[in-house]
Amino acid sequence: MLIYQRNVLPILLVLYLLLSNDGVQGEMKLSKLEELSLEKQLKLLNKPAVKTIKAKWGDTYDCVDFYKQPAFDHLLLKNHNFHPEMKPTLSMKKQIPSNSTIDISGTWLETDGCPSGTVPIKRITKDDLIRQRRMPPSEDTNFIHEETGGFRRAIVKTPDNASNKFAGAGMVASLWNPSVEGAQNSACRLKIQKGQDSVQVGWRVDPTLYGDTKTRFFIHFQAGNKHCYNTLCPGFVVTNNRLVLDTVFKDVAHRGANTNWELVMSIDRDANGNWWLLVDERMEVGFWPQKIFTALSNDFAENIEWGGSIYSPPGVPYPPMGSGFLPKTPDPFLDAYCRALTFSNDKGEKMNAKNTPIFLDSQVLYHVIDKPDWEYVKGAHQHIMFYGGPNED
């Protein structure tokens, strides 16, 4: 009877939290037992702070000792040899030029960042924990073709081939703020995958994850059956003491305006098999250690995706993607895009991605126009793809 009670009580608590939730902001009435349970979880997640920084968009970040950050709660990282001055050992033999209108180092924190030897980690709140219980399953297990609900993609990808060997990929994405409600989300991301393992980076509007409808920087990984956003669970090792995950991009594109706001990003495998996240081409944010993966542990990636992804709960109409309009006569000032699409081969050579089939989960709601040889500026060509929907001009 005692064993039965131990198994049932946590389930009942989860059910209560789900059924009692009044909205995506996590407003609900909690019993003393539930309050204590959440407080205990918060103490485990929020590490001691050397310094606390209030970001200009309102979130609180704790400057946590590098060695005490959440990543090292992962069972496979207990006996690591990582250190704060780590840099990726990348052998990139060709760089793809890009001209971002976002000064990435100036969008994060108003101060000088965290002291040397510490890294900024977003402080988790009670509302964050409550909303997490309403997060949908991972993309990789939830791309189902239902009448309504689930994830939908509008992407270009590498050809399906079991012999593919990719050591990384990159892109420059235009920043938008598609309108979503409730448990919907809308994102643009670069995704690298092999088997059940994958890593992603990009921007997303996600009230369930963030508690607001702002455009934010995000990362995601899946290792086998486990998946996680940002630093909400152990896995991603933060190395940069100035750049933060979850940042809000206050400058986003508006249809018909003559200014593009962009984010430059890449994921690259180093000589030790770790998968590094870089922004503005060579600015390291951190890495996913090869130890936490199986398929991506000591091997190269097999698939790459560039483009948009949305989610809607069953029975709820699908939200806008990108600019919210279907690209017809592609125009960088009207349509969402990903440009400078690149990949690195198993020798570390960075190349323009050219053979990229289009993939659409819904050919009615969302469209993709792929231009492998777009003249971005006079005389300079690069790969660009336009995506979006569901509205029409």
Rank of each mutant, 00 (worst) to 15 (best):
N260W: 02
T239A: 02
M265I: 01
V252A: 03
G235A: 08
N241F: 00
P234K: 10
V244P: 03
D246L: 11
N258L: 12
W261C: 06
F236R: 09
V237Q: 09
D251S: 14
F249T: 06
K250F: 09
V238G: 04
F236Q: 08
N230A: 07
W261L: 08
F249H: 09
V264N: 05
H254L: 06
W261D: 06
N240V: 04
T239I: 15
V244Q: 06
A253W: 00
N260P: 02
C233L: 04
L243A: 05
F249P: 10
V237C: 13
D251Q: 15
T247W: 03
H254V: 10
N240H: 04
T247G: 08
V264E: 11
P234F: 07
G256D: 02
N230Y: 07
R255L: 05
D251M: 07
R242Q: 12
V264F: 01
P234Q: 09
V237S: 10
V238D: 02
G235Q: 10
D246H: 15
H254C: 02
F249G: 10
T239Q: 02
F249Q: 09
A257D: 15
T247L: 14
V248R: 10
A253R: 14
P234A: 09
P234R: 12
V244D: 09
N258Y: 04
E262Y: 03
R242Y: 03
F236Y: 14
F236K: 11
R242I: 01
F249M: 13
V248G: 03
V252Y: 04
A257K: 11
R255C: 05
F236E: 10
V248Y: 06
V252K: 14
T259R: 13
T239M: 01
L232W: 05
F249W: 14
T231W: 00
H254I: 03
H254Y: 01
L243V: 05
V264T: 08
L245Q: 14
V238C: 09
L232V: 03
A253P: 01
F249S: 08
L245P: 02
L245M: 14
D251Y: 03
L263Q: 12
